[in-house]
Simulated assay, not measured.
Amino acid sequence: MLMKIKENILAQLFVIYTRYLVGSGFVFASIVKIKGERFTTVSHEDAPFGTAFHFFETMYQTGIYWQFLGWGQLVAGLLLMTQRFAKLGAVVFFPIILNVFVITISMEFAFTPVITFLMLMANLLLLLWHWDELKILLNLTPTLPDANRLENKKIWEITGWILFLMTAGYRAINTLYNPILWMGMLVLVGLVPLVIVWVKGKKYLRF
């Protein structure tokens, strides 16, 4: 059943862009930590104990741990966005986003738990997508997919690297950023391979 779904072009496109979406979200959030900066320009050292602001201020003050979290998010996001290493990315991504989700439901984070829950569900979907290969981790016989599938085309890997560099670069050089501008640039670049695939059609896909 799963193998049949994985041969569907629309399903493959959905998975490809899900990797871009959740991966870029992690990369975007990681840079500020790697730079050793707060999420906000305002210090929350005097925030009430047990609040979300106090929690993040405490993590920020640890220094090395704060940057460690950033590097973990960066690596997980990059692996997903490259497409080539998406299976490993989905595995690395899971414990991080699960931890983030539990944190957001443990404190008052307004609408944030909804976002982290959706990211967690997206990650579980990606793990399910790769289950035929990942089940080797449980000493089960893996099933290798068709190498000529749409999701394995080089164009998605190239696009992933471009999106990664755009996201990391934009966040690294901009302390004050415009999320609408950032997302707009990613959408435009992300649509390019889709247009190419659409124009070249079945001859390109070898279906």
Rank of each mutant, 00 (worst) to 15 (best):
T41G: 14
V42M: 08
V42P: 03
S43P: 06
E45F: 11
E45N: 07
E45M: 08
E45D: 11
D46G: 06
D46C: 10
D46L: 13
A47E: 06
P48F: 00
A52S: 15
A52W: 12
F53H: 10
F53I: 07
F55L: 14
F55R: 10
E57N: 12
M59P: 03
T62Q: 10
G63C: 06
I64T: 14
Y65R: 10
Y65Q: 11
W66D: 02
W66H: 11
W66L: 08
W66R: 08
F68C: 02
G70H: 07
W71A: 13
G72C: 03
Q73C: 12
V75S: 06
V75K: 02
A76Y: 03
G77Q: 11
G77T: 14
G77L: 15
G77F: 10
L79G: 00
L80T: 01
L80H: 00
L80Y: 00
T82W: 13
Q83L: 14
R84F: 12
K87D: 10
L88F: 09
L88P: 04
G89S: 03
G89C: 03
G89T: 01
G89I: 01
F93T: 07
F94H: 01
I96E: 11
L98H: 01
N99S: 15
N99L: 08
N99I: 07
F101A: 08
I103S: 14
I103A: 12
I105R: 02
I105Y: 04
S106T: 14
S106G: 14
M107E: 02
M107A: 03
F109I: 06
A110M: 12
A110W: 08
F111N: 13
P113C: 01
V114A: 04
V114C: 02
T116H: 07
T116N: 06
F117L: 15
M119D: 13
L120C: 08
L120T: 15
L120Y: 09
M121R: 02
M121T: 01
A122D: 00
N123D: 15
N123W: 06
L124P: 00
L125I: 13
L128M: 09
W129K: 01
W129H: 04
W131C: 11
W131G: 10
D132N: 15
L134T: 04
K135P: 03
I136N: 04
L137C: 00
L137K: 01
L138A: 13
L138T: 15
L138M: 13
L138K: 07
N139Y: 07
N139D: 10
T141L: 06
T141A: 08
P142S: 12
T143K: 08
T143P: 12
L144K: 08
P145Q: 04
D146S: 07
A147W: 09
A147F: 08
N148D: 15
R149T: 11
L150P: 02
E151W: 02
E151R: 04
E151K: 04
K153D: 00
K153E: 02
K153Y: 02
I155N: 01
I155V: 13
E157I: 05
E157D: 08
